[in-house]
Design a protein around this nucleic acid. Structure first.
Lengths: 149, 149
DNA sequence: TGAACATCTGAACAAACTATCATACAACTG
DNA sequence: CAGTTGTATGATAGTTTGTTCAGATGTTCA
């Protein structure tokens, strides 16, 4: 886990020249190696497309689905689904089981469910697909979120 | 949470005409509304860039950092950082506190930490920033992951 | 074997994004 | 007040990404 150091150097922080070159150095050192950062970004990037999100949620709900059905459910072309699955496969997000001329895909592990749930709770929506909690009205809209013009 | 229904209709699944139009219908119904899917994808998309990942990890480690220092730590231009922060702010991933001519940013909530940790554990790396386990050599490469040519 | 089927792949184009530069603005300093 | 500093913005060029089409591969069945 990333260490939880919310104490920072804020009080003495000047942000002007010499704001804390040692603090900058230690923060820089704390960054993971670039290869890991890139892997992280790549995995998140995979989830950064509505079509792939629908695809993954479908797999989440049903366990194992073939390409043809994934296309039907998510409303995308079978070619598009195949391309998407290829990317997801390469990053071990999904695994395939082939049987005859069909290919059945499922999630490789439980991480995706967790990621989607955490992101949903960030949005303020309840993490469930159907049981969407509409309480906790719009606490999110009262904050800072200026809608990019 | 998304319901965990790994039992599916797999046995009877034919994938040929009439593979289970009712199953397809029910899976389609189970998909969240498009607006939520798009919000989900948007948030993940924000994490799908190495520069923004470094930025967020820095905030994760230090609590509150000004734009100038974020640029120094993550090795990006101040303009680039400012653009990135604008996007993150719009999606309520970070919040800003202004003091004088400086702007101090911090994570809006704990979700980001969770997302990064889950994604890291998916990669098979230890979730820590510095304590990167280099054992478990390439167990990941033995699976299916065909490296896109 | 030949036709229908399920999936996969490569190439091409449009759309979206990133990085960069120049500049604008507000706040502090002298 | 003029100059400097920290941050924010707009526009642009260059790259990446998603989508689509055409076709390739491998499977089943008559």
């Amino acid at each position: 886990m990333f260490s939880d150091s919310t104490q920072a150097t804020e009080a003495e922080h000047s942000c002007a020249p010499r704001s804390g070159s040692d603090r900058i150095a230690s923060l820089t050192r704390a960054l993971p190696p670039e290869s890991i950062v890139e892997d992280l970004a790549a995995v998140f990037g995979l989830l950064g497309d509505p079509g792939r999100v629908r695809l993954l949620i479908t797999l989440l709900e049903s366990g194992e689905v073939c390409v043809h059905d994934l296309a039907a459910v998510t409303g995308q072309s079978e070619s598009g689904i195949s391309h998407a699955l290829r990317l997801l496969r390469a990053h071990r997000v999904v695994v395939v089981r082939r049987s005859g001329r069909s290919a059945f895909y499922r999630l490789a592990d439980g991480h995706v469910r967790l990621l989607l749930d955490v992101a949903l709770s960030h949005l303020g929506h309840a993490p469930a697909a159907r049981a969407v909690r509409t309480d906790e009205p719009s606490s999110a809209a009262t904050e800072d979120g200026e809608a990019l013009t």
